[in-house]
Amino acid sequence: MEPEVISLTVNGRRHRLLIDPNVTLLQALREHLGYVDVKNGCEKGDCGACAVLMNGKAVNSCLMLAVQAHGAEIVTAAGLGSLEHPHPIQEAFADLGGAQCGYCTPGMVVATKALLDEIPHPSEEEIRVALSGNLCRCTGYGQIVEAVRAAAEKLAAAETV
């Protein structure tokens, strides 16, 4: 098996990576490139903890081969904001209890970003459907839904400024 050189952008940073074809994008991001904010919860597409934005769409990175991400723009939760400059979605999650143990949170934040990019004012049902691929065992989703709503309002308010 021959490794391949791929180029991809992660959180705005360009990477060139020599990688075997049988490595998943999740493994490449975590083990090879050090983006450990992308979590491994099941490696089977059941839990959504590994969700990243790929060219703007929320996908399970565990279900992709890294070589399939050649030329792609990947955004992880850490790419949306930082401790110094958190994204409004991240602030809303932090303020409203959207994160308890926090393990599902990066994937949840990514899925939320994808949702709000597509539907700036989602209904509760739209929120729940959009997050239905992100399992959370701690919150019961109630405060997550509230956080998404609050984030939507924050973003809308920022728009109109």
Partner: peptide, 9 residues
């Protein structure tokens, strides 16, 4: 079908 994340792919 599955989840929204899977549907995207």
């Amino acid at each position: 079908f599955a989840s929204p994340l899977v549907r995207n792919r």
